[in-house]
Design a protein around this nucleic acid. Structure first.
Lengths: 336, 336
DNA sequence: ATCCTGTCAGGAACCGATTCCAGGCAACCG
DNA sequence: CGGTTGCCTGGAATCGGTTCCTGACAGGAT
């Protein structure tokens, strides 16, 4: 429990000199710098973070906001952020709150207001206008992953292009009866990734004069949700599509598991394509557009740190890397 | 950016009275208390956490240490802890570091030494003796989830009893050729859940005079790891067991997916039983022993808070709830 | 010899709260 | 009526650092 005063006393210098020696600011001769360092070492001195924060205004903490932890995409982001920040000695305070939950209000009224961080990384945050203003008012740098927030540098995918790409992939294989499994955007202004993906699919189908069919699954987009939905919408052979564009890999996998269970052969009777590059994609031979959320977490952290240091203002929108991987879940439709 | 001095000035009282009025300690008349509260409200006063921490020695932060986020068990724990702490205004600083990683040393040397929290929840921490001493030396309450640490209240399962239970279940169905899919404990002193589970299986097999067969999968115990391992060990029909006790549900699911893929019928040709009650268990009709990691996160948080408040010293070992759920992944072996 | 400049170190103010201590005042008791 | 007690408030110290400001000193330039 020794403080900097103890270190200073042991080294035979003043508090201010000890502080300068340890933090590296201002003039200190090499010999005293070493004496102070030795004293700190031998006392096992660890600076009090609250005192440092109070004096400097910096917390060496970044806030990470995610709607959920227990999904591959968000879990990967968390791991990417952690991996980058731990070696730098930064703390990560995690805030888990789904849009619309009670915790969401607490987020803005308590957690963000408290400003116990130097910057914020927000994944899939869906703030309304009032929230966005509160976010801007706290005066700390913010980086968004996933959906673009006005005035906030965002790292994300070009979702419309991606679903266009994979829808074209199915069409090129000869499919005409293609469903999008996800959700219908509530408004024309897409607020979420899923909305953009739905729109990319819809536009492509329209361009080709093909019928748009949307199968809804709950917004959580988990494998189990998609499985349950697929068990019901695959049952009717009359309305069953030959191709499925899934909102994400977890939905795609849920559909595949349901199909297998119902004896529907993938890809012979049903082609499925996802988006994510989920850990399980290869195991299910899933054709998918890979993205790399852990790398996105790393990249978002770098962007945020550069804003905190004030060295640079990142671009308003940074595209994240993707890659189409064709596996064995897509094939031409069986001739009628 | 107004401080308590501004609030005091606006309310026409001293800093000390304002502080007492807002924190609720000591004598303050109702009328001034209200005046101060109004002043704070109208200024949008938010106390500086670093100043509060410095003065009180309390951080209103708890540290959560997990080896990984992107696994159902750990993700659930994180969500349970978050759910409990957010309404209380506590911050959660998350530390993700696998045993043996570089980050693990940083954990002890930097993160824990800094003491920027009031208590610690550690899931599946595997400290060596030196680590354990460092943990004790920081002088903050600790609760462990999963594996018992000496001197630390632990919330966990009776793993030996659980695997005994499910091994008996398979034996009662008529199986004699039962493999444990997980790992062999490195020492006789079990350090991890998996070790205990392995031992429970082994003892039960020995008691019945049956041969012990262990199939190893990497320590990460993911679905994909288990899938890959199962694809190889299920291939040889001569050595293929009729029953599998999986170290956890993710391993069990990996085995089931591999079996389906290889045309091995579950449960007719292969019975599989897991441990966890994973989100996917029902989808795969998996017989399993359910546990509730999110509830464990909640419970561990409660224990820790009671230690922080000093109200009570929790018992050395608290058993977590479990429940055997028999589904359609287990059946009597096919008669030869 | 004087002046300036660069290096080094210490004293004291400061960050923004909490809390100890002392004192004023009214009410109640003996 | 003096003394004790309880309620209420303000001043000042404190938590543990950082940083501004001042000054001492040595060396080089004028």
């Amino acid at each position: 429990m020794s403080g900097i005063a103890d270190v200073a006393r042991l080294a035979g210098v003043s508090k201010s000199t000890a502080s300068r020696a340890l933090t590296g600011g201002g003039y200190v001769s090499d010999s005293t710098r070493r004496r102070v360092a030795d004293a700190a070492e031998s006392l096992g001195y660890v600076p009090s973070t609250s005192a440092v924060s109070l004096a400097t205004g910096r917390t060496r903490t970044i806030a990470l906001i995610v709607p959920k932890v227990n999904r591959w995409y968000f879990g990967s982001i968390v791991e990417g952020v952690e991996r980058t920040l731990i070696p730098l000695g930064y703390d990560v305070t995690l805030y888990v709150a789904e849009p619309g939950s009670d915790d969401r209000e607490t987020l803005y009224s308590t957690y963000l207001a408290r400003k116990r961080f130097d910057g914020i990384i927000a994944a899939a945050l869906e703030p309304d206008d009032a929230d966005l203003e509160r976010l801007a008012n706290i005066g700390k740098p913010v980086v968004s992953i996933g959906n673009p927030l006005t005035g906030v540098p965002t790292l994300g995918l070009d979702n419309v292009a991606i679903t266009r790409n994979i829808t074209e992939h199915l069409i090129a294989l000869g499919h005409t009866d293609i469903a999008f499994v996800g959700s219908t955007p509530s408004t024309d202004a897409p607020a979420k990734d899923v909305d953009e993906r739905s729109i990319g699919y819809r536009n492509t189908m329209n361009d080709h004069g093909l019928a748009v069919r949307i199968r809804s699954v709950p917004a959580t987009l988990t494998i189990t949700d998609a499985y349950a939905a697929a068990v019901s919408f695959l049952a009717d052979t009359a309305t069953r599509p030959t191709g499925v564009v899934a909102a994400c890999d977890e939905v795609a996998i849920g559909v595949i598991i349901a199909a297998r269970r119902m004896g529907i052969s993938v890809p012979t009777e049903l082609s499925v394509v996802g988006i994510d590059g989920h850990d399980y994609a290869e195991m299910f031979s899933l054709t998918t557009v890979e993205q790399f959320p852990e790398a996105q977490g790393v990249e978002a952290t770098r962007l945020l740190l550069s804003m905190i240091e004030g060295t640079s203002q990142p671009p308003w929108r940074t595209p994240a890397e993707t890659r189409l991987v064709v596996r064995a879940s897509t094939a031409p439709p069986r001739p009628v």
